[in-house]
């Protein structure tokens, strides 16, 4: 069964002037239909303004579609009574690490979600410990979030979502404000959760390198899904990606250029190892 399913979702941002007259309409989501399988690692790619963050906000009912339906674990997101169930099922990590940490101590922040859900005290402590261990931040549990690095803050945010025991975690550009080291920390933590805990991960990003290990990739542009498939399938379409102004991982680009020049390489090379193997086979 699909953990998240959308059917013909339409969402528009309407701009108004001071008198309330409509001055412009931006269609952020243009009839999006997709299904996400339980336990998958999904990546949603797209440049700024492609609608990917708007889509993410539909996955846990922060936004509800104007037309069409979003189902999270079988619940319709426009059903007001189910809203807390939905938010518990699909946890969300946002872009800015500073703007989503509520607690003044790491462990208190992780406990915030379970507190809101009315989980008994002893159970909260258990969950906080497990979640912090899962993202490798347990040693920092007594620290102030202000003293942590960006990557560490994002891992705390992930732990905060994890403590709510979600079936699915939506990461909305969690690495956009981080340095390369922090980016790797966060992506590794997300991948770990997907593998070990079987949590469905939906990663929204514009960094191609983070997409390579996904089970399935959706590429968005202008509010529509323009491509979908495995990373290998997507990255073999270098021309199309370039037309969408998306960067292709360096290795893939190199392999593609080499192939254009006549080298007999397989399609969709994603890692250095694959390229090395491909080139050594050429002789």
């Amino acid at each position: 069964m699909d953990i998240i399913k959308t059917q013909d979702v339409l969402y528009e941002y309407i701009r108004r002037d001071d008198e309330g007259e409509v001055t412009g309409i931006t269609t952020a989501l243009d009839h999006i239909s997709l299904g996400i399988k339980k336990g998958d690692f999904i990546a949603i790619l797209g440049r700024n303004g492609s609608g990917k963050s708007t889509l993410a906000k539909h996955f846990n009912a922060i936004l509800t579609p104007e037309e069409g339906t979003v189902w999270v674990d079988g619940n319709d997101t426009s059903d007001e009574d189910k809203i807390w169930d939905i938010r518990q099922t699909a946890g969300m990590v946002f872009q800015n690490p500073d703007n989503q940490i509520i607690g003044q101590v790491v462990e208190e922040d992780v406990g915030f979600g379970p507190e809101n859900m009315g989980v008994p005290t002893e159970e909260i402590w258990k969950r906080v410990e497990e979640s912090l261990k899962a993202v490798g931040m347990y040693e920092y549990r007594k620290h102030s979030p202000n003293k942590l690095s960006g990557g560490q803050k994002q891992r705390v945010s992930i732990a905060g979502v994890l403590a709510m025991k979600p079936k699915c975690i939506v990461l909305d550009e969690p690495t956009a404000m981080l340095d390369p080291k922090g980016r790797r920390e966060v992506i590794d933590a997300a991948r770990e959760l997907n593998k070990k805990e079987g949590v469905t991960v939906i990663l929204i990003t514009h960094y191609m390198e983070e997409v390579i290990n996904a089970d399935r990739v959706f590429v968005m542009d202008g509010g529509k899904i323009v491509m979908q498939g495995t990373p290998k399938q997507i990255f073999s379409l270098v021309d199309e990606l370039k037309a969408l102004r998306l960067d292709v991982p360096q290795v893939t680009l190199l392999a593609w250029e080499l192939k254009k020049k006549g080298l007999n390489l397989p399609e969709g090379i994603l890692t250095v190892e694959e390229l090395v193997e491909g080139i050594s086979r050429c002789r």
């Binding site: 922060i62 969300m92 946002f94 703007n99 989503q100 509520i102 915030f112 809101n116 709510m164």
Partner: peptide
């Protein structure tokens, strides 16, 4: 942002 994050965590 914070309000969104708090709501997302069932506040």
């Amino acid at each position: 942002d914070l309000a969104n994050a708090m709501e997302a965590r069932c506040y």
